[in-house]
């Protein structure tokens, strides 16, 4: 389990996170929702120790997250973070060189799943395919937790569908996923937990199936209530 406990973050005078707490469990898809600039990416960066927080604590299974955790938890940012002149094959080799948790079999499977050609250079890929390579490099790691920042933004509908299919496949099965998004159309029926954020705080956290079952509301219904209140 990943536990985010009461974290605060300021950029200069701008308060981005004002005491955010939530948990994300293994085997569940947790979705952080909020408009752009609400601090979703900052939360993921903070979890991965890519930006210092001013207050609060983040743990994974009772341990602080550090470089020792990175065989267990990985982050897929919203744009690819490989050197553009590298080919897909070279990027995969890079990952294999540095990660014990790299699963070459799954990587090959993902190449097929996304219909990608290994010999292509990253700088030559379409937006959609770049997003898929980005996802591939994270998904092929045998980690417990996957953090994904806006995996659906700025790409075509067919790529979005393909990426959404990842979440119903064995590729994320039994892993914990934290995903950020500002619109949930692509994955509304796929997510387990929903965390609604605004102004650097959690407005509401709930299980998607529970509100459907107990209140007969869709996730968007709840969002409407919370954000328009």
């Amino acid at each position: 389990m990943i536990e985010v406990k009461n974290i605060y973050k300021k950029f200069g005078r701008k308060k981005v996170l004002n005491g955010v707490s939530f948990t994300a469990e293994k085997g569940k898809i947790t979705c952080l929702i909020g408009v752009n600039g609400v601090g979703k990416t900052t939360i993921l960066n903070a979890i991965m120790n890519l930006t210092p927080i001013n207050h609060g604590e983040i743990t994974m299974g009772d341990e602080k997250i550090s470089d020792r955790s990175f065989e267990k938890i990985t982050f897929i940012p919203d744009a690819i973070t490989m050197i553009p002149s590298m080919t897909i094959a070279e990027s995969m080799q890079f990952m294999q060189d540095f990660y014990d948790s790299w699963n070459q079999k799954r990587a090959t499977e993902l190449l097929g799943f996304f219909k990608l050609k290994e010999t292509e250079q990253i700088s030559d890929l379409s937006k959609g395919n770049t997003a898929k390579v980005n996802l591939l490099l994270g998904l092929a790691l045998d980690v417990d937790f996957l953090l994904m920042d806006e995996p659906f933004s700025g790409i075509d509908i067919f790529s979005r569908e393909q990426i959404a299919d990842v979440f119903s496949s064995h590729l994320v099965e039994d892993r914990g996923v934290i995903i950020t998004t500002h619109e949930i159309n692509d994955i509304e029926h796929l997510i387990d937990k929903v965390i609604l954020l605004d102004d650097g705080v959690v407005l509401k956290a709930f299980n998607a199936e529970d509100v459907r079952e107990n209140e007969g509301k869709s996730v968007v219904d709840v969002m409407r209530e919370v954000y328009q209140a």
């Binding site: 991965m48 890519l50 470089d67 990985t74 982050f75 973070t81 553009p84 890079f94 540095f98 948790s101």
Partner: peptide
């Protein structure tokens, strides 16, 4: 350089920074 950059990759390697 760029939007999301190689420093992410380097800082997220499972080895001492």
């Amino acid at each position: 350089f760029g939007k999301n950059t190689f420093i992410y990759r380097l800082l997220l390697l499972p080895s001492a920074r």
